[in-house]
Design a protein around this nucleic acid. Structure first.
Length: 480
RNA sequence: GUCUCCAUCGUCUAGUGGCCUAGGACACCGGGUUCUCAUCCCGGCAACAUGGGUUCGACUCCCAUUGGAGAUGCCA
């Protein structure tokens, strides 16, 4: 049985790169009838962020990635939070020491914490404590000297392993560093906790970013030292971003909104985001692009995974988001977009159904909505030059004449329905042998104060209502 | 610096030796429908990084070069 896991650390936000890793791990499990496990990796106490675990739950729920086991839903391999498992790692590390695959290190902490971005980190450990006299070790331990436990790597020869997407990887062991397994504070490092937990939780396929490709031999040495079975590896190509200068690098904050929640806040639909990132590094091998999560689970295959890094393209995400928006039932769109309208508590709020109808085909991202409808709340200032339009043959004089005829007719209308509103202008155009576009142009300017509007003047007048529409028409007349 | 990986249109990708005058999508540019805009429809632009092999035949296999990315943390 396939068992995959998603093991995020609670940092307070969900990077789309991590989310895509979760998606593929989920897809792999679901497509094989396997199980998907959520494990929280919070071994770095300095990084603890309040409420961060809830962000993870909320994101997964919104994204539609359900887990079979995890801190919130339980399971047979718990606990699923590493800080609650703190007691289990040290004995395993000590076992490694006994087996000669690890050693105590009493060296001072190297204070080169976070290297500047883009620059090389400090070079590897010099191996000072690697072959310490056992008596010295015992004495140091007895004296309560602070220590870390390092992996004792056999630096001879090469390591080879197979990755499901990248194929065979060969690394010279001499470049592998004696990485720390247990930190000075007694907590395991990610590298160690990961191996122990993946084994203990029966993970069969390790799905993670390709940045782990070069360090995987170290993990394998750990598995072998314990006598544990090595899982299958599915390393994923990285998601890249482009900065203001056009340089490409691993996607991060400086490339714009890259967390799931910020994208949602901007008005991207979760299902569109998931669909988009599914295609960033994976292909169904045909021309289809729109998939629901369950459709994805049906056709997903590791063989569709790509090896080269993919650039996150906001343009394409926007397009896909628009596709999802347009495919929504009108009521669903109205419901889901309302929060972005800024209309809550205003008189226009109960007109939202009609307004949303105009917006659905014209919006790619929900956050565009306020800018598209602010003219409904407040008539923008405009000059009579707005009545000029070549294509519809409109100009201020013609518009003045037309509006002078039309306004009394509208004022006399008994029913302010779109049918009636439309009938007036259509029959006027017919009676005067003019193209409909001509009177419509003048009306649009008068009721909206804008050259471009979502929908036409009839829809706008219907939404504005009789009083406000007539007020705007009178205002237009006063401009000439 | 060292190590690892990658390399098809600007971007995401299809292509697993002949089906390729390299397909699709986004973006971009035209045209049509239309009361503006948008939707919708039609069309166009645009790529196999370079050099060597292997082969009857390379986008597809091998090598080198170049380019790009990642790793090199008591972060994950």
């Amino acid at each position: 049985m396939v068992r995959t896991r998603f093991a995020p650390s609670p940092t307070g936000f969900m990077h789309v790169g991590n989310l895509r890793t979760a998606l593929y791990a989920w897809l792999l499990a679901r497509s094989q009838g396997g199980r998907f496990v959520l494990r929280i990796e919070d071994t770095d106490q300095a990084r603890y962020v309040e409420g961060a675990v809830d962000v993870i739950y909320n994101t997964l729920r919104q994204a539609g990635l359900d887990h079979d086991e995890g801190p919130d839903v339980g399971g047979d391999f718990g606990p699923y939070v590493q800080s609650e498992r703190r007691g289990i790692y040290l004995p395993y590390a000590e076992e490694l020491v006994r087996k000669g695959a690890a050693y105590y290190c009493f060296c001072d902490k190297q204070e080169a914490a976070e290297p500047p971005e883009g620059e090389a980190a400090t070079s590897g450990y010099d191996g000072h404590c690697r072959d310490l006299d056992p008596a010295v070790v015992a004495a140091n331990l007895a004296a309560g000297m602070p220590y870390v436990i390092r992996q004792k790597i056999d630096k001879s020869g090469t390591s080879t392993y197979r990755d499901d997407v990248f194929g065979e990887i060969v690394i010279e062991n001499k470049v592998l560093d004696d990485q720390i397994l247990i930190k000075r504070d007694g907590m395991p490092t990610y590298n160690f906790a990961n191996v122990v937990d993946d084994h203990l939780m029966g993970i069969t396929h390790v799905v993670r970013g390709s940045e782990y490709l070069p360090s995987t031999p170290k993990y394998n040495m750990l598995y072998r030292a314990f006598g544990w079975e090595i899982p299958e590896y599915v390393h994923l190509p990285l998601i890249m971003g482009r900065d203001a200068e056009g340089n490409i690098s691993k996607l991060s904050k400086r490339h714009g909104a890259v967390s799931f929640e910020s994208l949602v806040a901007e008005g991207y639909l979760p299902e569109a985001i998931m669909n988009y990132i599914a295609l960033l590094g994976w292909s169904p091998k045909n021309d289809r692009e729109i998939f629901t999560l369950s459709e994805l689970a049906e056709v997903f295959s590791v063989s569709g995974l790509n090896k080269s890094p993919a650039v996150f393209d906001y343009d394409k995400l926007r397009w896909m988001n628009a596709e999802y928006i347009k495919a929504l039932a009108p009521e669903a769109f109205a419901l889901r977009s309302y929060a972005f309208s800024g209309l809550d508590g205003t008189p226009l709020a109960d007109k939202w159904g009609s307004i949303a109808k105009l917006l659905q085909q014209r919006v790619e991202v929900l956050s565009e909505i306020p800018g598209k409808i602010d003219f409904l709340q407040k008539l923008p200032e405009y000059g009579i030059d707005f009545f000029n339009n070549k294509k519809s043959k409109s100009n201020p004089e013609a518009a003045h004449a037309i509006l002078s005829d039309l306004v009394p007719q509208y004022r006399g209308l008994e029913s302010w329905s779109s049918e009636e509103l439309n009938r007036v202008v259509v029959s006027y155009a017919e009676a005067h042998g003019m193209k409909l576009g001509l009177p419509m142009w003048g009306l649009r300017i008068a009721v909206s104060g804008q050259l471009v509007t979502p929908g036409g003047p009839v829809e706008i007048m219907e939404i504005l209502g009789r009083e406000e529409s007539l007020r705007r028409l009178d205002h237009a007349l006063s401009l000439f």
